[in-house]
Nucleic acid binder design. Structure first.
Length: 139
DNA sequence: CGTTTGACTACGC
DNA sequence: CGCGTAGCCAAAC
């Protein structure tokens, strides 16, 4: 009847979306999740999207060609453990693309945020337009 | 196979 | 802004 949820398939969708983030831009776990419908077989409220946690889990060990470092948390900061080599790498790779972090280690979504893929790209894959990134106060 | 863990978020105070 | 709480759900243990 229902197909069981297939995490592998869903990870591929997540990776496909993340691969669309252009250099010099960044997205958030929640924004990525907001484009992806729930797995088939799950009885969801129509409004619910993929859990942002799933996106984070998918980033943990992703293929080399996925620009995982362009995904930040909803506040625009790095979610990897502060001071860890991985967190340092993420910041370095973003800065190498011209992304600027403020004194609080936060990127300005208005500058480096991403609007999501083209509508046609989304429509072709049955995905939703992304929820806008939360705008931090005073910049 | 039950329990705990996390690269999450929204919301309340 | 900072801290706590409640949902979240695949993975790891």
């Amino acid at each position: 009847m229902f197909s069981p949820p297939d995490p592998r398939t869903y990870n591929q969708i997540i990776y496909a979306v993340v691969r669309q983030i252009p250099p010099g831009r960044a997205s958030s776990y929640g924004q990525i999740a907001s484009m992806i419908p729930p797995p088939a077989g799950v009885e969801p409220p129509a409004y619910r999207r993929l859990s942002p946690r799933w996106v984070g889990t998918a980033m943990r060990n992703c293929p080399d060609d996925v620009p995982w470092f362009r995904v930040l948390n909803s506040r625009g900061t790095i979610s990897l453990p502060a001071g860890s080599p991985a967190a340092h790498e993420q910041r370095a790779r973003l800065e190498a693309e011209g992304v600027v972090f403020d004194e609080n280690g936060r990127v300005d979504w208005a500058v480096a945020g991403w609007d999501g893929p083209d509508d046609e790209w989304l429509r072709a894959r049955g995905l939703f337009p992304p929820r806008p990134l939360k705008k931090p106060k005073r910049g």
